Computed example of a mutant assay.
Amino acid sequence: MNAAKGLKGVVAVETSISSVDGKNGILLYRGIEISEVMKIASFEKAAYFLWYGKWPDDHELRKLKNELSKHRVLSPEMKKIIDGLPENMDMMSVIRTAVSSEGTVDYNWKPTTGQAVRLTAQVPSIIAYRKRTLEGNAPVSPIPDLSHVENYLYMLYGSLPIKAHADALEAYMILTLEHGMNASTFAARVTASTESDLVSAATSAIGTMKGPLHGGAPSGVIDLLNEISEVNDIEKVLRHKLTRGEKLMGFGHRVYKTHDPRAIALKERLLQTAGEDPWLDLALETERMAVQLLNEFKPGRSLYTNVEFYAAAIMKAIQMEPALFTPTFTASRMVGWSAHVLEQAEDNTIFRPESVYVGPDRRVEEKMN
């Protein structure tokens, strides 16, 4: 019996939420290409679409925005738990612990979309509350009229974000709402398959996202952009790295063997803000030069930017420290995780894969002796 290590190539579920075609560079949200989603969707619209399988009308969108706004306010109990955590606890562990504390009897099986909205609203507030209290700054109360992404930036920094930054971060968060049967989504569905609650499934997913092989921050791209900024010569830096055989961080992807559709969509959104932020402009010009040089040094390899490249540029532009990259990724992916938990509950079968025993057979050894 041959084992598929890591379950690679093994179909575990049937889903109508998203489709990832790495060979052809296609990502679909409920049958619609991500580039088309980006043209018409705000974070709230895209989240509604993934949860309900249809676009919201004006009334439904207002209702969702009101629900997100209402649940942004953390309870005194959750704040007390966050305040009591060790100062040297990383942000992903803080999110995991805070979300886990939400698991009251209100979340007992079966999961609901209302629960998904509540958790999605809370994660940005958890991140912002923890960041500001650790820095010795007073926590910032949410502003009801701000969008989900605008409010996240406002609660982080205590001032209203400029439009270019809010638009760029919203684009990134829409693109990372969902991405097929990745490790954290699988973890959420495995937990949900036992008829556990949504909070438990989300906690499993957060713990999985924390691992650097899954939710690792694109710090290498930040280092590259910093170096280019200091030298002030994009071609010189990139050509030097390629001549030395170094990898250009932010190029190539383990799933997409051609263009990463999320990077293309994000680039198109950033082009609309060209000239409004120097870091975003630098990223756009770096990509142009890098693709040109990669074709020269590695012809036929089809190495293009991945979503982490532009994500790093966005984080740099809004002055977000690397420690918040994966937590911000988590804040968006809560939508995808909860959509999968809701889908799992509709037609549930507990996951129980087989394993291949490769240890010794003591019975054979005893007979031989």
Rank of each mutant, 00 (worst) to 15 (best):
G6I: 00
L7Q: 09
G9I: 09
G9D: 12
A12W: 01
S16F: 00
S18K: 06
V20M: 07
N24K: 10
G25R: 06
G25E: 10
R30P: 12
I34S: 03
E36C: 00
V37R: 00
K39V: 00
K39S: 14
W51E: 08
P56F: 07
K63W: 07
K70P: 02
R72A: 07
R72C: 09
V73D: 07
D83E: 13
M89E: 11
D90R: 08
R96S: 15
T97M: 03
S100N: 12
S101T: 01
S101Q: 03
G103N: 15
T104C: 02
V105M: 09
N108I: 12
G114N: 15
A116N: 09
R118D: 05
T120N: 00
I127Y: 06
I127G: 08
T133S: 08
T133V: 15
L134E: 11
L134M: 14
A138E: 15
S141L: 13
P144V: 00
L146K: 11
E150D: 15
M155E: 13
M155T: 13
L160Y: 13
I162G: 02
K163S: 15
D167F: 11
A168E: 09
L169G: 10
T176D: 05
E178M: 02
H179Y: 09
R189S: 11
S204H: 02
S204W: 00
I206S: 02
G211T: 09
D223Q: 04
N226A: 01
V231G: 08
V231F: 01
R244V: 02
E246W: 01
L248V: 15
L248S: 07
M249Q: 12
M249Y: 07
Y256F: 14
K257M: 10
A263T: 12
I264H: 01
L266Q: 11
Q272L: 13
T273L: 14
T273M: 11
W279E: 13
D281L: 05
A283Y: 08
L284R: 03
E285N: 09
M289S: 14
A290H: 01
A290F: 07
R301V: 05
L303H: 04
L303W: 02
A313F: 01
K316G: 00
A317T: 05
M320S: 13
E321V: 00
A323T: 10
F325C: 05
V335C: 12
V335H: 11
A339F: 05
L342P: 06
L342W: 07
E346G: 13
N348L: 13
F351C: 03
R352V: 06
P353W: 12
V356G: 04
Y357G: 10
D361W: 00
D361A: 05
E365C: 01
E365I: 14
